[in-house]
């Protein structure tokens, strides 16, 4: 049973990655969105505040928060896209009728979303280092923070967007469901990333553990809740 679900999930991942490679949405739309966000954040902060006395500029100080806000907003685009390719032509129904377990569909979608977010994070992170003068104090800690946050966001985003799958108005309803519920993850990721970058001592290690817990929680919730969400799309 578990092997069959994992096999189906792997096939969903392969299928969706092929679709993404063919359409190029990640490179032509998602990554440019992330870079535009970086530029807008830079423009939005008064140039007089961009360099201040002390160790870091204001932009470098708030970079962890801006980074994760960018990722969170991109999550909406990525997950919306993941479900649009299935539900617009009824292929989600076809997958279910073909006997694919809902957990395999949701799990496969979450893996693809996580992979796309990782690409986005690498590009936006590099941009933040270059443009916001961010320095990385503890790379290993930062990797743990990024992986756990990405898994939590991908799991929760896929779960919540599945609630409105196939519904009219899902593009506007999705953000209402995802953004408030993801605020604790955003706050935790910002504090933990700040600690990894600057050793700010803002309870970063505790938040890193909380992020790992969020990642596990949303992954389990997605697997357990998949049947209830996708049985009758």
């Amino acid at each position: 049973m578990i092997a069959a679900v994992a096999g189906d999930a792997a096939r969903i991942v392969a299928k969706d990655l092929r679709i993404e490679r063919a359409t190029g949405v990640i490179t032509t739309q998602i990554l440019p969105f992330g870079i535009v966000m970086l530029l807008l954040f830079g423009f939005g902060v008064d140039p007089a505040l961009q360099v201040r006395g002390g160790d870091r500029s204001v932009l470098a100080e708030v970079a962890p928060g801006l980074f994760w806000i960018t990722v969170l907003l991109a999550l909406l685009l990525v997950v919306g896209r993941a479900f649009a390719v299935e539900s617009d032509d009824g292929s989600l129904d076809a997958l279910l009728v073909a006997g694919v377990h809902p957990a395999a569909i949701l799990g496969g979608k979450a893996v693809v979303v996580a992979a796309e977010l990782v690409v986005l994070e690498l590009v936006v992170g590099a941009g933040a280092v270059l443009m916001f003068d961010v320095t990385i104090g503890d790379p290993l800690h930062l990797v743990v923070v990024m992986v756990s946050t990405t898994v939590a966001l991908a799991g929760a985003g896929t779960l919540f967007l599945a609630v409105v799958a196939g519904q009219r108005g899902r593009d506007t309803l999705g953000p209402l469901l995802v953004l408030p519920a993801m605020a604790p993850v955003l706050i935790g990721a910002t504090a933990a990333a700040g600690d990894a970058l600057y050793g700010a001592g803002s309870g970063g290690i505790a938040w890193t553990w909380a992020l790992v817990a969020f990642a596990l929680l949303y992954s389990v919730a997605g697997i357990v809740g998949a049947g209830a969400l996708l049985e009758d799309v």
Partner: peptide
């Protein structure tokens, strides 16, 4: 109604984390 109830239930459980 049944589908809606199940979807709301999943959201209602996960929402309680907050």
């Amino acid at each position: 109604a049944e589908v809606r109830a199940r979807r709301a239930a999943v959201f209602g459980i996960v929402a309680f984390i907050n």
